[in-house]
Design a binder for these strands. Structure first.
Lengths: 337, 337
DNA sequence: CTGAAAGCGCTTACAG
DNA sequence: CTGAAAGCGCTTACAG
């Protein structure tokens, strides 16, 4: 592994010039550029990252923190796609991504250490819980950061999100329009912002049609398949006509519970979800759901963050990405017309 | 974010001394230590990683490369547990882990770049395919590295593995002992070393009992649930009495195919797997399988690697971890006695 | 367009 | 036990 100094000597120029060449500085003559590049290639020169970071003051690595625990991270397709979005946008901009692989409590203890030692140029955070301390730590650290999913109380931070309230309201309204009146919901965890927002959308949809809220029809889930399964079992005794499940993995669990109970979908109980994970198109029956642009949430967060790093501005970025209502078979068809 | 220099000034000692304190060098007097630590805490000093790496020549970060593509990585519980093992061992030794988030082809293009820029002190590689170029790159780079899973041709490298051949032979022999004679197998991908080894174990078990190999009973899978499902469907026409499935996710897929065909396990077809993922204990029926110490594979790889980094030796490490035959219901009971 | 020089924030022999 | 000094391998004004 040669150093920049050696490359300079070998090509008969100064270290400054080699540095310019490898950093694509336009102020280098063509012959010089070619001469140096030949040597760089010949010796397979790779600039030392630590030295480069120390001298330049930035590392071109982004931190990705998902304070949700490793198991959930690997279990929910949402994160899989989100991470792909983050990862591909980073690659495209020549940044690396450092994924925090640790449990929630671990984060809190280490978070400041990691934030302040200059390892990352910025961070993207997904799926915070409402009382998460990470936002404070981030604000204190003065590092640029992007949230995926808005924060309920701290509003002067950058984020990208979908309109969870409106989207949930839309799909529940669809159910109402089909003629169902006893519409239940399996909510997300209510300490997650998206959980609260989707619940809110459910309430709004019912209220705006003058339907009274029946708390017996509301069960809290945790976004997981298992959680959906058990929530649905609890809901069974209330015999809802339709259920809005606040995430597709939970909807898969709810389907399993329904099948086990010998109930058919949508004839006995109609079901809709939220996410549109790949499995939702293949489920039995295919799931009506809200499609989130998950990959794009990740890539937009990264692109915005990189822009923030490279061109600091004071303006806040609050980006809302569009969702789609995807109608398949699990919601049934118009009961009235 | 104060620098070491400022901490030195503030505590009235030299930079050398501050460095010794934060690195727990025993050659520091107690009063000095306390004085400096007080200042360190007061200002929440975090050493700059880039500077530290540059000066010391090591980074305390380990690369984890699993050249299998992001989707597979997030889909197979094997990797989830492996990563937890790697991650926890790193944490315990104050190392960070950098997970490559990229598709296989990408690796090859970038691998040298990443290996030679001094970002990682060593790397652990899991799940290579037989013709993988990464081992060469690793050898060239002169970085310390550990393989999880042996390499078929390059033997002078360090690895930790289970004895796939013997374990597969053991579980197939169990099937034979129970009285089944038409024993099929759904293999792993035969460009993966573990896929080949488990297939080899199947062959050995049959051969050592004088049973002729029937190629119609051998179908290649890909370690995934889907792959197991389709492989089992192809096997159905051969009406095997029992099937050795080379991974538990594939066994789950095979069960699904069997259930769909209206066949019951183990009455119509007995089934055994390999891995013992969490789902295998809860499947219907619970799956007889080989338990791999996956978490330990990860942590042993890391511990050995760190030892290699901190105490370089020429000796090769070839570590074989034990497996267990876990007998549950899917294999049925003794047909003969 | 190119080079000399300072500096990024640490660690580590070397003295004492 | 402690400090002065060199050095890790780069980048970046500053001159020219």
């Amino acid at each position: 592994m040669p150093t920049l100094e050696e490359i300079a000597k070998l090509s008969g120029v100064s270290r400054s010039t080699v540095s310019r060449v490898i950093n694509n500085d336009p102020h280098v003559s063509d012959p010089t550029y070619k001469k140096v590049m030949a040597v760089v290639r010949e010796f397979n020169y790779q600039p030392n990252i630590a030295a480069r970071s120390l001298a330049s003051g930035h590392t071109r690595v982004l931190g990705l923190v998902i304070p949700t625990g490793v198991s959930k991270l690997f279990t929910d397709p949402y994160f899989q796609i989100l991470i792909q979005g983050v990862s591909s946008a980073c690659n495209a901009h020549d940044y690396s991504v450092m994924l925090w692989l640790a449990e929630p409590e671990y984060e809190r203890r280490m978070i400041k250490k990691i934030l302040n030692n200059g390892l990352v140029d910025g961070v993207v955070v997904s799926s915070m819980v409402v009382d998460d301390v990470i936002v404070e730590a981030l604000v204190e650290s003065e590092l640029p950061f992007m949230l995926i999913g808005r924060h309920p109380t701290v509003t002067d931070v950058n984020y990208v999100d979908v309109d969870n309230v409106a989207s949930a309201k839309e799909i529940v309204t669809h159910l109402l329009r089909l003629g169902y009146t006893r519409v239940a919901t399996i909510t997300g965890p209510l300490n997650a912002i998206s959980g609260v927002d989707r619940y809110e959308g459910y309430i709004e949809a019912l209220s705006s049609r003058g339907i009274k809220i029946d708390t017996g029809l509301i069960v809290e889930g945790d976004f997981s398949e298992e959680g959906g399964y058990y929530a649905m079992r609890r809901l069974l005794s209330q015999s809802p006509q339709a259920v809005f499940v606040a995430s597709d993995p939970m909807a898969m669990g709810a389907m399993r519970a329904l099948h086990e109970a010998g109930l058919s979908i949508p004839e006995d109980v109609a079901l809709v979800g939220f996410d549109d994970i790949p499995a939702s198109a293949r489920s039995n029956p295919p799931l009506t759901t809200i499609r989130q642009p998950v990959h794009m949430l990740g890539s937009v967060a990264v692109k915005t963050l990189i822009d923030l790093i490279e061109h600091p501005v004071a303006d806040l970025h609050h980006i809302i990405l569009p969702t789609q209502l995807v109608i398949r078979e699990s919601c049934g068809v118009d009961l009235i017309s």
